[in-house]
Amino acid sequence: MSTSTLPHAFPPDVMAQLREVAEVDPDLVVEDFHAPRAREALAEAEVLVTGWGCPPVDASVLARAPRLRGILHAAGTVKSLVTEACWERGIWVSSAATANALPVAEYTLGMILITGKGLFTQRDTNWTAPGAQIGGIIEGIGNHGRRIGVVGASRIGRRVIELLRPFDFEVSLADPYVDAAEAAALGVRRRQLHGPDGLFATSDVVTVHAPEVPGTRHLVGRAELALMPDRAVLINTARGSLVDTRALIEELRTERISAVLDVTDPEPLPADSPLRSLPNVRLTPHLAGSQGNEIARLGLVVVEELRRVRAGIPLAHPVDRSGLSRAA
Rank of each mutant, 00 (worst) to 15 (best):
V178R: 00
R189W: 03
G312D: 12
W87N: 03
H194T: 15
D13M: 05
V61P: 04
D320A: 12
P314N: 06
A97C: 04
R308M: 11
E251Y: 09
E44T: 14
T237Q: 03
V29A: 12
L81E: 11
A35S: 15
S80M: 09
D175C: 02
I138V: 15
V188Y: 01
R67S: 10
P26K: 01
G51V: 01
E255W: 11
E304R: 14
S277P: 00
G90E: 04
A41M: 08
G70C: 09
R231T: 13
A65V: 10
V49F: 11
A328E: 13
R123N: 11
G142N: 04
G90S: 05
G323F: 11
I156P: 00
D230Q: 15
A43I: 09
G76Q: 01
G312H: 11
R64W: 06
G195C: 06
S273M: 09
P66I: 08
L300Y: 04
A288D: 02
T125V: 13
L164E: 05
D272R: 06
Q291N: 08
A105L: 04
A74C: 10
P274M: 09
S94Y: 02
P214L: 11
D265N: 15
L81N: 02
G118L: 08
H194F: 12
A288K: 00
T207I: 03
L261F: 09
E294N: 11
S2T: 12
G140L: 09
L300I: 10
W92I: 11
H209D: 00
R326T: 12
T115V: 03
L278Q: 06
L248K: 05
I313L: 14
S290G: 10
P279D: 08
A132Q: 15
S4N: 13
G195P: 07
R39C: 10
R37L: 13
V61S: 09
I137M: 10
A184N: 06
V21R: 01
G195T: 08
A129P: 01
L113M: 13
D265M: 08
L278A: 09
A185N: 14
M111F: 12
L113F: 07
A101P: 00
R256G: 09
H317I: 02
L81F: 05
R123F: 11
G110T: 04
L42C: 10
L48G: 09
Q133L: 15
N100F: 00
A45I: 09
I114G: 01
P266W: 02
E304G: 02
I148K: 00
I313W: 07
E23M: 08
V47H: 12
V243Y: 06
A99W: 00
P196G: 02
A153P: 02
L287A: 15
S60D: 15
G135M: 07
M228P: 02
G140R: 08
P176Y: 08
R159K: 15
K79H: 15
E305A: 11
V309S: 03
L113A: 10
E162T: 14
L298Y: 05
V309Y: 11
Q291W: 03
A327R: 14
R155T: 10
G289C: 03
V49A: 13
L68P: 08
G145L: 10
L18Y: 01
L242W: 09
G131N: 08
E224Q: 14
G131V: 09
G136T: 00
G76P: 04
I138P: 03
R217F: 07
S290I: 05
